[in-house]
Every structure is written in structure tokens, then in C-alpha cells.
Write a protein that binds this DNA or RNA. Structure first.
Lengths: 193, 193
DNA sequence: CTCCTTTCTTCACTTAAGTGAACGAGATCA
DNA sequence: TGATCTCGTTCACTTAAGTGAAGAAAGGAG
């Protein structure tokens, strides 16, 4: 389990045994059951996550409707905006499956940055990489139709389409479950011809 | 002009005169005319930007159509994804107005990080902040209709609606210029009643 | 196993965005 | 000045998503 994290970190910086031990001693690994809510709207939180195994999602409740905006699966890291802005959360975070993840907070990061300056380098590189990736996600979402977005998702994250309920997928694609059903039927009809 | 940059940086770290001089000596300020293309699709680039005054935008050309995905105005920084991924650009960057900006590259950042470790802290904080802000932008786009997005833009960046051509605004909102016209007429009708 | 809830699909109808065409206003340039 | 181009708007028509309701299928809880 630790090795999954260390292999991930190795993409950005090299770690000594001493540093690895320091990380292990932080006791950041958590195991959470499917359906568990990690964060609720209105709550304050300082927790950042890294998914070792499983799947979590973020959703807003607007006009009584759940709007899913992101899924995080194996080897994905994320810090909720409310942690950065230090304001109450505007959305929920919950587990789609039984999930193993790490939970850290700004204090731990500050401590790590102090002890190991290269840790800050990793955080910077990771943030810059995620910023670029998310920029592309946003651009792709803006420039494509729901049908294109669905086909794109089938290409890029085929696992999601399998492991996530349709109504959450629909929400993630910016449409209603009924529209996703119809859209899938439309694609199927096209593929037959 | 330098002071605009230093005031911005002061939000993240404090700079000595020596450090400011080092930055000035990098000769990063540029003045570009309206309509200038800073980056073309297919080109490689290592340039990051920070807008002092004016407005630049990014757009893709898909099926011969320009799709505007972002505007950057006063005090906004951005590094194109292609700089991070070191691949040819998939889009264009061009100036909506006469613009004054800074242009830097990874070498200059590495050099600054080496000389002044707190520079890296600033980059990390900025990247983390932009990541959180962009996350919210993406969430808002996903969870709202074109009409809501337009009204939201009127609230959050009223200047954009004034200074940017309608067809680019429409594209930014994820719709066609005709739809933006209609949508504006619809809003106007509602406001009369 | 049965009951009940959740999830997914289908249908008919409404609403809004896409498309192609046309027109007028304003800018640009010879 | 007149010719041309871009830009924004409007119109008629098409296409696809939203809505509300209904029912089938799958999954859990007792």
C-alpha cells in the first residue's frame, strides 16, 4: 500500500528510506466503505486526498438535485477548493466503492516542506501538472457536445463507465440520466448501420 | 509596470530589493498589439504569461471553427498546457487588445527557484490557488445552462462582456453566436416584465 | 424468498440550442 | 465616396436536451 504512494511520488522526486519512514509515521492511510461521505456541504475541512484503490466523487446539491462534477480513482490526488480557500465546502465528497486513500492536511505538508525541501518541489510539479490537465478537461468539455463527451469518456476512462452508476455519469457529462440513456441508444443505432 | 508584478507577487511572498532587481534584469516585459498571435496550433513553446494590462485569449480551431476557451486579463497568470507537457500546442493564443505582459520560461523559473527558494513557494501557492479556482470554473460550467453561465459571467467578469466580441464570448460560453443573441433577447424580455 | 428501493430505460411533450440564410450597422481601405 | 468585410441580429426550420410519468430490471434488507 505504501509502495503505491512511493511509486507515485517517485515520478516527481527521489525519496530516501529516512524520508519514506517519516511519511509512514504520519499514519495517513485510511480505508473507507462504499457510500461513506467524506465531506458535506457547509463543513470546513483541511483534508487532501490521494486514492490508492477505489473511487470517490464530488457532487453539489443544487435545487435539490445531485450534480456530480468529478471522479477520482487509482493514483489521483486532489485537494478540495474549500481547503485552499479556507471556507465551508460547497459540495459533498463520497465513496463510490470501498476505497483506500491517504488523508493529509496543510500542517503535514508544511512540516514535510520544512524537513524536505524537495517535497515542496513535488507539490509544485504536481499542482502544475494537474492545472494543465484540468485546463484540457475544461477545454474539452466546453468545445464538445454531450455525445462527444460520452464517446471521449469511453476512450479515456472506460473503467468509469463500468464502475459508476449511470445517473452520476450523466451528471458528470452535464446532462440528465434520461438524456444519457437516449444518447447511448442513438450511438448504438448508429453503430448497427 | 514592474510594480504591478511586484504587488502581485507580494500576495504570496515578500521580496527584497536585490530580488526585485534580479527579476527586472530578466527583461521579461513585452508589449503586444491587438490581433497579435502569440502561439499557433502545432508550435512548440516554453512561454508562460502574466498579463499586466490588456486581454489575451486561447482558442482551438476544430472543424474549421474557432472555439474560444479562456480569456486572461489584468493580473492573471497562465502557463499553456503544452509548455507543461512539452508537446506541440493544440490551440492558439492571441491578443484581444493591445496588451502588456511578462513572458517567462521554465529555465528562468528553475534559475529563480535555485537563487531564491521562496520563489518556488510562490509558484506552488499560485498553482494550488489556480487549480482550485479552475476547478470551481469547471464545476460551474458543468452544472449550469448557457443562460445561467451568461448571467454568471455578467456578475463575475462584467468587463469581459464589454471588451470582447460577442462571437468569442458565445464560444467561451459553449454556444453559437446566434444562440447568445437569442439568449440575450430572452433575458431582456424577462427583465421588462 | 419476498418486498422494497434504487437504477435504468422508454414515451410524449416542451424548451432551447444548432443550422443556414439574410439583412443592417459599422469599420476598413482603395 | 463607394466597395468590401466583419459582426451582430433575426428568421424558419431541425435536432437534441429537459421534464414528468410510467414501468422494467437489478440489488439489498429483512
Amino acid at each position: 500500500m505504501e509502495n503505491v504512494l512511493f511509486d507515485f511520488m517517485a515520478k516527481y522526486i527521489s525519496l530516501t528510506e529516512e524520508e519514506k519512514n517519516a511519511i509512514v509515521s504520519l499514519d495517513i492511510f485510511r480505508s473507507v466503505k462504499k457510500g461513506t461521505t467524506l465531506l458535506k456541504e457547509g463543513q470546513k475541512s483541511r483534508d487532501s486526498y490521494f486514492v490508492i484503490k477505489g473511487c470517490i466523487l464530488t457532487y453539489y446539491v443544487l435545487d435539490g438535485e445531485e450534480k456530480t462534477t468529478a471522479f477520482y480513482t487509482e493514483l489521483e490526488a486532489f485537494t478540495p477548493p474549500c481547503v485552499v480557500s479556507k471556507t465551508p465546502s460547497e459540495y459533498y465528497i463520497s465513496c463510490v466503492e470501498d476505497t483506500i486513500l491517504t488523508v493529509s492536511n496543510p500542517d503535514m505538508e508544511a512540516e514535510a516542506n520544512r524537513k524536505f525541501p524537495k517535497f515542496e518541489t513535488m507539490c509544485r510539479l504536481l499542482a502544475e501538472e494537474l492545472l494543465a490537465k484540468q485546463r484540457i478537461d475544461l477545454d474539452e468539455f466546453k468545445t464538445s457536445s454531450p455525445e462527444q463527451r460520452y464517446l471521449n469518456l469511453l476512450q479515456k476512462r472506460p473503467d468509469l463507465v463500468q464502475r459508476v452508476p449511470q445517473h452520476q455519469l450523466a451528471s458528470y457529462l452535464g446532462i440528465k440520466p434520461q438524456s444519457l440513456s437516449r444518447l447511448r441508444a442513438r450511438i448504438f443505432e448508429k453503430s448497427k448501420r
